[in-house]
């Protein structure tokens, strides 16, 4: 397993340096070294999306990202969402529409929803379905999540958090 090295990167705006094997997963470094346990391991192989985080503002499955690739980059996790205006709106709408049942898929689902709405501030139902298709939820049948995302998009547009049209 080669040797441990030091890796420095930003997480939710804060500088962190960890000592880790280069192949260790970003997911484990976040959860175990930094105790940011909001991202979850549902499958460990890139299928469920419950480990989703932002790496330089792009959604990634943190179970597939070796820590060596994170050196010098920026990570954002569910723990920082409340300070992002769109994240906050989505959290409120997930709550209002019961988009979180057991809640284990929710952190990843929120990351996927932000990614979708940033790209497309007025998604149709079909576009929401496609945008969230990489994140599995076993509890909801997804409908309440769609409701939450559609409603959040509308509120975000009204509040000027998102632009009016499609990007």
């Amino acid at each position: 397993m080669s040797v441990k090295k030091h890796y420095s990167f930003l997480v939710n705006g804060e500088n962190h340096t960890v000592e880790s094997y280069p192949a260790n997963r970003l997911l484990d470094v976040l959860r175990e070294d930094l105790r940011l346990t909001g991202c979850k391991e549902g499958c460990g192989e890139g299928e469920c999306g419950s480990c989703s985080v932002f790496l330089d503002d792009v959604m990634v499955n943190s179970c597939l990202v070796p820590i060596a690739q994170v050196q010098g980059r920026q990570v954002r996790t569910v723990e920082a969402l409340s300070s992002d205006p769109l994240g906050k709106i989505l959290q409120e709408k997930f709550l209002e529409h019961n988009g979180a049942q057991c809640g284990i898929c929710t952190p990843g689902m929120l990351v996927a929803a932000i990614t979708l709405l940033r790209r497309n501030s007025q998604p149709t139902l079909g576009e929401i379905q496609d945008g969230l298709a990489g994140n599995l939820c076993r509890c909801t049948g997804y409908k309440k999540i769609f409701d939450a995302v559609a409603d959040a998009a509308q509120v975000a547009r009204e509040q000027g958090v998102l632009e009016g049209g499609k990007a």
């Binding site: 959290q91 709550l95 019961n98 929710t106």
Partner: peptide
């Protein structure tokens, strides 16, 4: 939901 906020904030 009672425990909803904890769930949406991770």
């Amino acid at each position: 939901r009672k425990e909803g906020w904890e769930k949406v904030t991770g």
